Simulated scan of single mutants.
Amino acid sequence: MFNTVRDRMSRAADGYAPHEHRPLDGYVTAMGAFGGLAVALAVAARATGRPVPERPSLKDVALVSMATHKLSRLLAKDAVTSPLRAPFAEYSGPAGAGELNEEVRDSGSSVRHGFGELITCPFCLAVWVATGLTGGLVLAPRLTRLGATVLTATAVSDFLQFAYDAAKKSTEG
């Protein structure tokens, strides 16, 4: 069924970007995988009988927001996580503060290319990370809050490091 939907969407997209390759099949595959993640989280919540909050607390929204920012950047840009991206991207230069710029590999596979675009883009990854963390708040709230606290503290520390560096430079003239 999934291949039929993907084939129909691919045929419908013919002529979408005639002068530029756009990995639409890869995007459809990524959307399907994201839908699968969302369904799996919903099924797990129902199977475990975990209550889904009617409205998340403002504290949890703030915590997950900061943790999403940090984890998305960590996965998409951090030098240490580059081995995870290496099959889909190639190094193109430093981006400053331990981050890298990378280009998606031209592999000939639109699915691989689409995944490469996803895994090298912190903005693109953010919805996946936020979904996972939000699902974690339902399925394993204590553990998720603990992990999100570590990520949030690291993000705040990053901003403080930049502020310290800027203050230091401004006093040195």
Rank of each mutant, 00 (worst) to 15 (best):
L63F: 03
R8Y: 11
L118G: 00
F115Q: 00
D7K: 12
F2K: 15
F34E: 04
A12L: 13
K168V: 15
V43F: 05
H113L: 07
V52R: 12
A44W: 02
R73N: 11
D60T: 06
E172G: 09
C124G: 12
L41P: 00
G108S: 08
A17D: 09
L160N: 06
D25E: 15
Y164A: 14
N3W: 12
P83S: 12
A40Q: 11
L125G: 04
V39H: 03
D25H: 09
S110H: 12
P122R: 14
Y27A: 13
S72E: 03
V104Q: 01
G32N: 08
L71I: 07
L143Q: 14
C124W: 08
L24E: 05
L75T: 01
A95L: 07
P87G: 11
A17W: 02
F162R: 14
S109E: 08
L133G: 04
V104M: 01
N101G: 08
V104I: 09
A44D: 04
S57K: 05
G136Y: 02
D7T: 15
T171W: 12
S170Y: 05
R73S: 06
V129S: 04
F123H: 09
A79G: 01
K77V: 04
M1Q: 10
A95R: 06
T81C: 03
F2H: 15
A167P: 00
R105F: 02
G173T: 08
A62Q: 06
E102V: 10
K168Y: 10
W128M: 06
L63W: 00
Q161G: 12
V64C: 08
T134D: 00
L118D: 09
T29E: 14
S65C: 10
D25V: 08
V39P: 01
M31A: 15
P141S: 05
G15A: 04
R55K: 14
S82F: 13
